[in-house]
């Protein structure tokens, strides 16, 4: 087994995949804590569907660099969804469900009608659940991920206390002069970016698992915001690494394996919290 792993590690694309996987899991988990606590976790899910739709459009238009289309569309959707959820007039969750299912349907329709590929079902499956495309990362993707991680980590270090205040009590934060709307916007845009990059790793259906699971696992056991943040990041990195190694060794799909490991960790943490409560 060790031999097998050692052999794989000779290939640069395996190293890239591991690095990118860990970075994406790390960023998603940090964002996840705020998104879950602000009751915005559904935004991650909605955005991933929008990204799928955008990906389909890019595929149909035969654009080589799909990022150029997918990223702007998803960012715009993120900003609109955030506005919608803050506007008391429109029922936030209904309009979101509409957009996300709509994007999914249109995307699939477009792929089916216009795609020149002979293996449409396979293409769709790949976009939805991620695939071996994690192994086809090029050096640009890797640098993109590193850049994004630096931005996300920088944001969470520099604005940590303000993000806490805005997440805990937006009205109080605003009253003391924090521009809460700007932080919400920043978080929405970064969420959109992380989601688009993460699609390569786990596909658009599974990305919200990377956002939600580490955060809710950490919240089972830890009781301060700082510890939840740190624990969430550690859980995400460990799960991503374990998931990717298992998927290499057992030849299972990468995205689904990472999510499965996350589910196991969540179960373990739930048991721990139940035991701690009893004591």
């Amino acid at each position: 087994m060790i031999d097998k792993l050692a052999l794989y590690f000779e290939y640069p694309f395996v190293k890239y995949a591991l690095l990118v996987g860990v970075l994406i899991a790390l960023c998603s988990s940090l964002l996840g804590v705020t998104l879950v606590l602000k009751r915005f976790s559904f935004i991650g899910d909605g955005l991933s569907h929008v990204a799928f739709g955008a990906m389909a459009v890019a595929a149909v238009l035969n654009i080589t660099n799909q990022m150029l289309i997918v990223l702007p569309i998803t960012v715009v959707a993120a900003v609109l969804l955030l506005r919608g959820s803050q506007n008391a007039k429109i029922k936030g969750d209904a309009s979101l469900a509409m957009i996300s299912v709509g994007a999914l349907a249109i995307g699939y329709l477009l792929l089916n009608v216009f795609s020149t590929s002979t293996n449409i079902a396979g293409d769709v499956c790949t976009t939805l659940f991620g695939s071996t495309s994690i192994l086809t990362l090029n050096i640009t993707d890797v640098w993109l991920c590193i850049g994004m991680s630096v931005v996300v980590l920088g944001m969470f270090t520099f604005f940590y206390h303000k993000i806490f205040a805005v997440t805990f009590d937006e009205n109080f934060a605003k009253a003391t002069g924090i521009k809460a709307d700007r932080y919400n916007l920043m978080i929405a845009i970064i969420t959109a970016t992380v989601i688009v990059l993460a699609m390569k790793l786990v596909g658009s259906l599974l990305i919200s698992a990377l956002i939600i699971f580490p955060a809710i696992s950490a919240m089972r056991v830890f009781k301060s915001f700082r510890l939840v943040m740190i624990a969430s990041a550690v859980i995400a990195v460990v799960c991503a690494l374990a998931g990717m190694l298992i998927s290499i060794l057992a030849a299972t799909p990468v995205g689904a394996t990472i999510v499965a490991v996350n589910i196991v960790v969540f179960a373990i943490f739930s048991v721990i919290s139940a035991i701690v409560l009893k004591l």
Binding site: F164, F168, S224, F225, R226, L227, V228
Partner: peptide
């Protein structure tokens, strides 16, 4: 919300 009294 997971927040310690000190953080709040």
């Amino acid at each position: 919300f997971p927040a310690s009294v000190w953080e709040v």
